[in-house]
């Protein structure tokens, strides 16, 4: 059944390229099947399915869920296949080097993929976060938050944050990439026994 899924990749191959073990990749396949069949049962995760799982709402636009989807969709064909899902999730593994997490976060925040996080992009993200959280701040306050952050992060003072400045900034504020690590990815089989149970059933089939 797994082989009928478009873009299915051998768990052993995926395990060899990521910090996951073969049985963990199999457990992730159970999760993938669930996510990829929540709206359209075609073995691929569509944007709406991803967003539904992340923010429990398929209609409300969420800039950040959109950005994560775009980065997971490595082939940029509008869907996340199993291999893309596992490789992208591996960034969030506790054993993945921090430099990869810092790089991923930079790409997330570089909304227009110019190689820089620009002031306008940061403001757009702050406004999106406020909107998502039903928080209202005056434009003055938003401008102040963005300005202060830029003064702090843009050490070269050229009005944009490059990857080097970003690395220095994260080194000073490590909490900024806390959400780039999912502790339980280290032992998915313990954290998600139901997925393992299912994958064992499949193994014996």
């Amino acid at each position: 059944r797994a082989r009928q899924i478009p873009g299915y990749e051998d768990p052993a191959t995926l395990a060899s390229e990521t910090p996951f073990t073969v049985s963990e990749v199999e457990a992730l396949f159970e999760l993938f099947k669930k996510l990829s069949s929540s709206i359209i049962d075609d073995g691929l995760i569509h944007r709406e399915e991803f967003q539904l799982a992340l923010i429990r709402n398929r209609n409300k636009k969420n800039l950040f869920a959109d950005r994560v989807f775009d980065l997971f969709d490595v082939k940029r064909n509008g869907v996340i296949a199993f291999g893309e899902f596992v490789r992208s999730l591996s960034i969030f593994h506790p054993n993945t080097p921090e430099v990869d997490k810092i790089d991923f976060a930079f790409k997330l925040y570089d909304l227009r993929q110019t190689g820089f996080i620009e002031r306008e992009e940061l403001k757009e993200m702050v406004l999106a976060l406020l909107n998502e959280s039903d928080l209202v701040l005056s434009d003055d306050v938003v401008e102040t938050i963005v300005d202060k952050t830029f003064v702090d992060a843009d050490s070269k003072g050229d009005g944009k944050i490059d990857t080097e400045e970003w690395k220095e900034f994260v080194a000073r504020y490590p909490s900024l990439i806390k959400n780039m690590t999912l502790p339980y990815l280290k032992d998915i089989t313990l954290a998600f026994p139901s997925f393992v149970m299912n994958s064992e059933v499949e193994d014996s089939e």
Binding site: R67, V126, A128, E132
Partner: peptide, 25 residues
């Protein structure tokens, strides 16, 4: 004086960036 938050710290709290939500039932 109000504490001025780090904008990146603020946006890192987005639900859309909390991948653990993918694992919730």
């Amino acid at each position: 004086r109000p504490v001025i938050m780090n904008a990146f710290e603020l946006i890192s709290t987005s639900q859309g960036l909390n991948l653990s939500n993918l694992f919730e039932k």
